[in-house]
Nucleic acid binder design. Structure first.
Lengths: 210, 210, 210, 210
DNA sequence: TATGAATGAGAATTCATTCAT
DNA sequence: GATGAATGAATTCTCATTCAT
C-alpha cells in the first residue's frame, strides 16, 4: 500500500498554501488540518515554518529548471533552442501551477526573501537563456538584445497567464466574456515564442516555425 | 503650512508596506511607527486593515489607468495607440513602483482577494487594449490575436521588470554582472512595444516607428 | 424654543445605554452618536464615565424614592400604606423602565459598585418599609416578619417584571404564547400587594382591599 | 492524581468572573491569571469570549432546572409541588450563587442577549410552574392566577436575596444593623412559599403545611 | 512517530480620554 | 460650547512553536 509519507504530504499541502496565501498568509494550523496531520507532526518533520518554505521552493523549482535545461539541450539551432526554452517553461509552469504563484510573490517581494536556492535556480534559467541568445547572435540569426528583457517577457507573461487562470474563470462568469476563459497554456507559449523569436530575427524573411 | 494630512500619510505608508510585505505580512504597528502616528489614528481614519488596503489599491490603481486611457486617446493610429498604451503603462509602473508589487501579489492570489475596484481598473485596461487591437484589425495593420495574451505580455513583462529592480541590483552586486543592473524602464517599454507590434503587423515590410 | 440642553440630552442617552448594556458595556462613542453630540462634548459636561454614571443613578433613583415616600405618607393605616408602597414602586418602575434594569445589574454586582447615593436611596425605601411593617405590628394587623424579605419580594418581583417586558414580547412572538405578553404593571402591583398583605395579616378574616 | 482539567478550571473561573462583572466587565486576561493558565489556553478550549459565556450558562442553568424538575416530580399534590418548586429553586440558587447574578444581569438586558439555551432552561421552569398551578386549579385548591406573576415573585425574590448577600453583609457592617445579615436562604424560600401558596389557596381555612 | 494540550510573543482592534482650534 | 483629530492603555484574539505522553 503506497501510503504517502507524512513529510511528503505536508510538503505538498504547504506548497499549495504558500502559493495561495503567501508566506505570511499561510497558517500552520490550516496546513495541519488540510493535510490531516497533527500540528506537532509538522514540526517533527520540518523544523520550522521558514525551513518548510525552503523545502517547498527547492522541491518546486529544481525539477522545473532541470526539465528546461534538458529540453533545450536536445535542440541544436538557437531558434529551436529558444522556442523549446519558452515552450518548456510554459509547459512546466502549467503542470505545477503553484510555481507561478510562488515565484510571482517572491518577485513582488523584490526577491529579497527568496531563499538562496530558488534564486540560484532562477539564475540558471537566465544563464541558459543568455547562452541561447548568444549562440543565436553567433549564428547570425538573432540580433543582439538584452537577455534580461527577454527573460522578463517569458517569465512575466507565462506566470501571469498561469496564475490568473482562476481569476479569469471567475471574470468570465461575471462578464459572460468567453474570451477570458483561455486556460490552455500551450498556444500562449507558442504565440509568445513566435513573438519573441520574430522580434529577434535578423532577417524577417527567415523561415519561421509553423 | 502645508502639513501632510495624517490620513494621507497613513495611506502612503500603508501602500509601501503592503507592496513590500503583502497584506498578511504588513503589520499595523510597523505602519504606525513608520508614519509617526499613533496606532489608534490608523483606525480613526481607516476602519480596519482590509479597508485600508482597499483604500490603497484605489488610490494606486485609478490614476494609473486613467493616465493610460488619456494618453492612448491622444493618438489616432492603432499602431501609435498600442505603442502609447505600452509605454504609458511602463512609465506609470516605473513612477509608482508599489503598483507592480501589489498587482503581482494580487495576481499570485489568483486575484480572488483583489478588491472589486482594483479588478475593475484592470479590466478597463484590458478593454482599452481590445479596442486598440480591434481598430488595428479594422485598419488592416494588425493580425487578429488574442488580446488577453498581449495584455499578459505587457503587464507581466513590465511588472516583473519594475518589481525586480531591487533584486537585480542585489544580484548585480553579488555577481558583478552589470547587465542585470538595467533599471531604466523606458527602453524596456520601447523594446516590448517594438516586439509586440512587430509580431502583430500584417505586413512585415510595414514601416515601423524608429 | 425649548431646546433640550446638551448635558440633559447626554444624561438621558447615557441612562438608556447603561440600562441596556451595563456600565462596562456602554460605550462612550455610541453614546455620543445616539445623542447626536460630539464625543468631546460629553467630557465637557460630565468629567468622566463613572461620574456620568453617578449622575444617571442620582437623577433616576432620587425622584422614584421621593415619590414613594410622599405617596405612603398620604395614607394612614399600615395596610393602606403598604399597598401604596408596593403600587407606587410598581408605578414608578414602569414609568422609568431604565430604573429596573440598572438596579438589577447593580444588585447582581453585589451592589459593590453601586454609588453611595443609589445605595442610600435604596435604604430609604427599606427604612420606609420597616416603619410601615412596624406600624402594622403595633396596630395588630400585621404579623411580625423580616422586612428584608418583604422588600425583596417587592423589588425582585417588580424589577423582574419590568425588565423582562421586551424579552417576554419576544418570547410571545416565538412561542405564540399570548399569556407572556402581560405588559401592564398595574395589575402585577395589585396582585403582589394583595399577596403580600394577605400573608402578613394576623387575622385572615380581616377585610381585604378589593 | 485528580488534576482538575484546564477546560473545567477555565469554565469555573469564567462563571465567577461573568457573575461578578458581567459579560463586558469580565476580562480575559484576568480570567487567565485567576485560573493560572495561559491566555491562549482559554482560546484553545473555548473558541472565543461569547462561546465561553455560553458554555458557562449551559453548565450553570441546566443542572439547576433539572434538579427542580426532578424534585417537583417527587411530590404529588399541587400544593406540595409548588412548595417544592420554590424551595428547590431557593436551595439551588443558594448553592450556586453565580446563577442568581448571571440571571439577573441577563434579565436586565431584557434577556435579548441571553443565549438560546439559557432562555430555554428558564422556559422549562416556567412551563413546570404552569403545570403545577393548573393542577392546583384542577384539584380546586388554587385559584386561577397568572403563572408569569408567580414566576416573577419566585425568581425575583430569590435572585435578589441571593445576589445581595455580599451587599447586605457590607451594609450590616456599616450600619451595625444585624437584621440585614440574614444570609440563610432556606427560611426565605419557606416564607416565600408560604406567602405565595396562602395567596393562591381557594379556601383560606384549608390546612397549610407547617 | 504521533498527538492533545499548552504557551509566549505578537497583532488587530477598541475605548476612555484629551487636545487644538 | 462644540468638534475633528489624536492617543495611551487596554482588550480580544492569533499563531508559531513546544511539551508531555
Amino acid at each position: 500500500m503506497a501510503k504517502i509519507k507524512t513529510a511528503e504530504k505536508i510538503l505538498m499541502g504547504a506548497t499549495r498554501l504558500f502559493a495561495q496565501h503567501g508566506y505570511d498568509g499561510a497558517i500552520m494550523d490550516d496546513l495541519a488540518e488540510q493535510c490531516g496531520v497533527n500540528k506537532a507532526s509538522i514540526y517533527y518533520h520540518h523544523k520550522d515554518k521558514i525551513t518548510l518554505y525552503e523545502h517547498c521552493l527547492e522541491a518546486l523549482f529544481t525539477p522545473i529548471v532541470d526539465a528546461i535545461i534538458v529540453a533545450v539541450e536536445q535542440e541544436s539551432g538557437a531558434q529551436d533552442k529558444l522556442a523549446m526554452h519558452i515552450n518548456t517553461f510554459a509547459k512546466e509552469s502549467a503542470a505545477k501551477p503553484y510555481f507561478a504563484a510562488i515565484l510571482m510573490r517572491e518577485m513582488a517581494s523584490g526577491g529579497t526573501n527568496l531563499p538562496v536556492l530558488a534564486r540560484t535556480q532562477m539564475q540558471r534559467i537566465l544563464r541558459l537563456l543568455k547562452q541561447v541568445l548568444a549562440q543565436g547572435v553567433d549564428e547570425k540569426v538573432f540580433k543582439k538584445t538584452e537577455p534580461l528583457i527577454v527573460h522578463f517577457m517569458i517569465v512575466g507573461t507565462i506566470n501571469l497567464f498561469v496564475a490568473t487562470i482562476p481569476l479569469r474563470n471567475a471574470l468570465a462568469m461575471e462578464e459572460g466574456c468567453q474570451s477570458l476563459k483561455v486556460s490552455n497554456v500551450k498556444p500562449v507559449g507558442k504565440q509568445l515564442a513566435k513573438t519573441i523569436i520574430r522580434s529577434l530575427l535578423t532577417d524577417v524573411t527567415h523561415p519561421m516555425p509553423p
